[in-house]
Design a protein around this nucleic acid. Structure first.
Lengths: 146, 146
DNA sequence: GCAATAATGAGAATCGTTATCATAATCGAA
DNA sequence: TTCGATTATGATAACGATTCTCATTATTGC
């Protein structure tokens, strides 16, 4: 998806809720789009300063989450990281390095993803639980830290 | 594993680090052992008051985590939940209800778990990542909320 | 028992996040 | 285009979860 396409999609989704797609919000979306994994408010702040002050950044993330543009990820003690929602980034899983703490996305080939989904459904069946989503979080050592 | 066995195991692990297994710490371990999913400090506090004051509870959780007795789980905005480590509770995954927010453990039958492990290894291979652990977090609706 | 070490509990301090509020930008209708 | 209404912004205060501090208490080994 090109960044123009992305911006058009995001804008129309926001417009439907009478929310404006301002330059600050565009910057946040662009930063998340260019990231290879979920990003915390602090990380985004460092990248976007001085254009997007911290309080606006938090508000923007809340607005975008509310509109289904970004999704929160809770993978580390005390910090929430955000990434573009699946309809914008595609379904993926996370590789969490136990050494350097980095969180990277990994897009799983569709045949493997099919198996993951089947397993999730099987488990749901066994546990009387109706899955609507899943996240496979893999902890290990990334190529840099190996 | 009986609670006596558990306490012996925990005690010896703590003793090896010159850490005492005091009554407050036993209470916390017992509370986690009887839980069906990870518990936050606030939840444990409510259950253990007035025996374990909040500051001691936090310190105890830190000590136990350090010793590998409990593991943190970051599944919700802003709160860390704890559960007994895998060597005490066995490997399992989490069912997170999107309606009521409850987090329950689910022990996956070994044939399915074997498949999960294989998928994790395959994905690691593809992504040049050496997995050491994995967590399959399933979001959906629990039996009560269905 | 005594000295050394470890644990406790109350409260202060910290950190990530959210709320407040006055100001500024933008939109829609006349 | 301009006025009025709505929405967005940014500085700051407030908040909740967690960690730190420190004086006191309990336990251990000698």
């Amino acid at each position: 998806m090109t960044s123009q396409t992305r911006d058009r999609e995001v804008e129309s989704r926001l417009r439907a809720r009478d929310v404006r797609y301002t330059s600050g919000r565009k910057r946040v979306v662009a930063a998340l789009a260019s990231a290879h994994g979920p990003r915390s408010a602090a990380e985004l702040n460092a990248e976007l300063l001085p254009d997007v002050p911290l309080s606006s950044l938090y508000r923007t993330l809340a607005v975008l989450e509310d509109a289904g543009i970004v999704s929160p990820h809770f993978g580390a003690r005390g910090v929430t990281r955000y990434e573009l929602a699946e309809w914008l980034r595609g379904h993926h899983h996370h590789l969490i390095c136990v050494d350097c703490g980095s969180v990277d996305d990994v897009a799983v080939p569709s045949d493997l993803e099919t198996e993951v989904r089947r397993l999730v459904d099987d488990i749901g069946m066994l546990a009387e639980f109706a899955p609507v989503n899943h996240a496979l979080e893999i902890e290990g050592r990334c190529a840099r830290c190996a």
